[in-house]
């Protein structure tokens, strides 16, 4: 198998995506889950860059890191807390 160093880097980042997704399900604190989601989106943007699609990387960085996390923080601050 002719795997280069970049391939192992992509595989490590994909593994981080799996870990972050599972962590978001099991974390009970909502703000911590939003922070983990921010890390998930950052790794996802790096994967897009690794796959030679910088267009999607910019959109992911703006829409994911900026917009979604910002909106989730606003929703967290304005909604009432369960449990």
């Amino acid at each position: 198998m002719g795997l280069t160093l970049a391939d192992y880097g992509t595989m490590a980042m994909l593994f981080m995506l799996i870990v972050a997704s599972l962590a978001m399900y099991f974390i009970r604190d909502l703000m911590h889950a939003v922070i983990v989601y921010g890390a998930y989106t950052l790794v996802m943007a790096l994967i897009w860059l690794q796959m030679n699609t910088p267009d999607l990387a910019i959109t992911e960085a703006a829409a994911g890191i900026g917009m979604t996390v910002m909106m989730m923080v606003v929703i967290y601050r304005t909604s009432r807390k369960e449990e």
Partner: peptide, 21 residues
Amino acid sequence: SPGGAFAGGMVVGLGVIGFST
């Protein structure tokens, strides 16, 4: 170049959003 009107407009909006936060 990479990017576009949607991503760029979102960055411009995020500047104002961060400011008002």
